[in-house]
Amino acid sequence: MKVKSSYIPYFLILPAFAYLLFFVGYPLVQALYIAFTQNGQFSLATVRKTFADPYFWDALKYTIALAGVIVPTQVGLALILALTVNRAFKGKDFTIYALTIPLTISDVAAGLIWYAILSPSGFLNKLLLNIGLIHQPIYFFGYQYRHMEFLAIVLAELWRATSIVFVIILAGLQMISNEYLEAAEVFGADYWTRLRKIVIPLLKPSIQSALIIRTLFAMQIFGIVWILAGRDIPILAGEGFYRLTELKEYDVASIYALVIAGLSILLGALYIKFMKAEYLEVRR
């Protein structure tokens, strides 16, 4: 039984809601003001200045490229992992625990950890050298190895943030009643048909939330790139950070903040528009 009451729930929610509204609304307004005015007058000067900077377009390009490579791979990987783990086997608890460890590891720490693996004197290079597979270390870092830096970021980010997708999808999987699958089995569906016709469609809401969460966080990617590549690979959050802390260009930094916020809203809206699961809609 739920209680019907007129004002109590609003009264309880109001403080949290007001707090959030302030911390989203105020900076948003502030950012718009800083970005689009000069000496109190409306001006597009800052926008022009930002757009004229090749770093801006590089940052946009790399942010989207990183998200484009990382997010789909993560969802695919997490789906395979969740499907594999979602059965009874020896060591299941340990496996799930191990798979969720990266949930707690910050982007900065993940960058540092992967530096230990990929640096010229790192684990991977020494391992491959000693096995004899390579005779020169593979260089992952430095401006001239930018594509390798990109790869290092992808590896580290896959390592760090696949966990969250895994947990969301696993939770979704566990919510699917076993009878749905048994019914399909009884009516003649093999494993792949069951996966295609029953499991994946029923997982759609989970996959959708994982995709939204990961895509939006990918728009803010910062620490891992900053540690592994610095500005060799410019990204939106990193450029905003650089403009603000190094150059004290509040106006340009605000544009970066607005671009990330705009991208997030746009992508979130697109996902929700195109990925609604029809059968959940009709329940209302």
Binding site: E182, A184, V186, G188, L202, Y279
Partner: peptide, 29 residues
């Protein structure tokens, strides 16, 4: 395996798949 037995079953929870229409549910087998 069940698919080679040509059986069908009515489950306790009905196991009517929520993401398919009634038509698609019946047509599935």
């Amino acid at each position: 395996p069940p698919k080679d037995r040509n059986i069908s079953m009515v489950f306790q929870s009905y196991a009517v798949w929520p993401h398919m229409t009634v038509y698609d549910n019946i047509a599935f087998p």
